[in-house]
Nucleic acid binder design. Structure first.
Lengths: 233, 233
DNA sequence: AGTGATTTTATGTGCATACATAATAAATTT
DNA sequence: AAATTTATTATGTATGCACATAAAATCACT
């Protein structure tokens, strides 16, 4: 009947998670405050704080000053998707990475693009389209618009060897961005590029990247059929 | 020429981010160690540590003991998707939530399902199919298998009023899970349920949930055409 | 009763210090 | 030269303490 001691925040976290999973603390319950837990666990309040903060970050606890800490009623699962450079993504799967530039030109973008990028309607942008391959089979089609006002050095690049995906990440700083996942039917052109049937369902990732108040780049990545983005919860 | 002081970890974080964005610290660069930064910022090392840890969590810094902290070469963007209960998701958009149970029966699942759930092949599971609606239009089709060995109370539920999505989250604890995003073409049945054209490209979320070593539930959520999952980076 | 000021309380954070740990670099041995 | 041991160093974390801050609860006053 020895009370176990919890010397580090990870073990406190584990115990807290155990209690939540075992329903010792049920959804909606107010759990004891940090000082009491520290006393019970035989550690400093700081340590309990660290552990509770970690659990709260994962969405299983709701914490509010003075109100205390309670078990989340409906834990919002937070799926964290790691969006890496496509070359790394492929190489990490143990596959051979291939790259092919399709087109590269300066052009006035369609309204949808200039709007999204908050760029003047008749302003020329750099338009790069390319294909990423894994073991010589089409993996993802990249359709990208780059704002030369923000990344003038981008105009000097051919993107024939290094993809815009990779070049930009290395050379264009950004402060924030947004990303959207959706499904779309392959147009005949997309089908040809990705070597799939027309109207195949494709996973699309649209990303818009900002540096301060100006848009750096807007990209759509279309993945081949049956492509999955996976993560653990 | 006063040296600004950084009294809290957030301001240190902001300054660190600024230096990275401004390329004062370039990708791959080793940054000064915590003690030096603490000295420079006029705060405790603990505070610098907290700030650097936060930045490292976001993927912009790589930290290794003894080796030091360096700016990530290719920052892996971490898109965090909040997967909430569908009802909340819809209500938070300010829409009216509707729910309709389609079928509910105990059945032997197809091989693909029993395999994924690591359930014996001829073992009966609870199969629930339902439709979630937003403002009376189909929003997501839920196709779920529940393991009654793990959640026996689940057999007593009708799922006519409360969706399995919501009921399970409230009543079935889980330790971990995996989630996959993909695109799929609507079958004729799915098209009918979701009121869309056959072969429409649909976004699919597949989730597999575990409690310890047993599978709690496996669910596929099919969203209506043009549905987007968005998040900020 | 209603309104506003005040107290209380739980979390949030900063700091100095100490020690733990991982990984590298240096020294030593084989 | 290779292998092993030892020292060094940067990050990782535990602790006690102090104070900050948000929000609930209470009290005071009209």
């Amino acid at each position: 009947m020895n009370k176990p001691s919890f010397r580090n925040w990870q073990s406190v976290q584990t115990e807290v998670l155990r209690r939540i999973h075992a329903r010792e603390w049920e959804p909606g319950d107010l759990i004891p405050n940090e000082s009491d837990l520290a006393l019970e666990f035989g550690c400093a309040r700081t340590t309990v704080n660290r552990a509770l903060r970690a659990v709260a970050d994962s969405g299983l606890l709701d914490r509010r000053r003075k109100a205390g800490t309670r078990v989340a009623e409906q834990p919002v699962a937070k799926a964290t998707l790691a969006i890496a450079v496509i070359r790394n993504e492929i190489e990490e799967r143990g596959q051979y990475y291939g790259y092919r530039l399709i087109t590269r030109r300066e052009a006035i973008p369609p309204l949808a693009v200039s709007d999204a990028m908050k760029s003047p309607q008749n302003h020329t942008l750099l338009h790069v389209r390319a294909l990423h391959l894994a073991d010589d089979t089409p993996y993802a089609f990249e359709d990208r618009w780059i704002n030369p006002k923000v990344v003038p050095e981008g105009l000097a690049e051919s993107y024939e060897i290094v993809s815009a995906n990779e070049w930009l990440l290395k050379h264009a700083p950004y402060t924030h961005g947004e990303i959207a996942f959706s499904a779309t039917s392959a147009t005949s052109e997309e089908a040809e590029i990705l070597c799939c049937n027309e109207n195949s369902a494709l996973l699309a990732i649209d990303r818009l990247t900002w540096d301060g108040s100006s848009t750096v780049t807007k990209v759509r990545l279309l993945f081949g059929p049956r492509h999955q983005l996976r993560t653990i919860l």
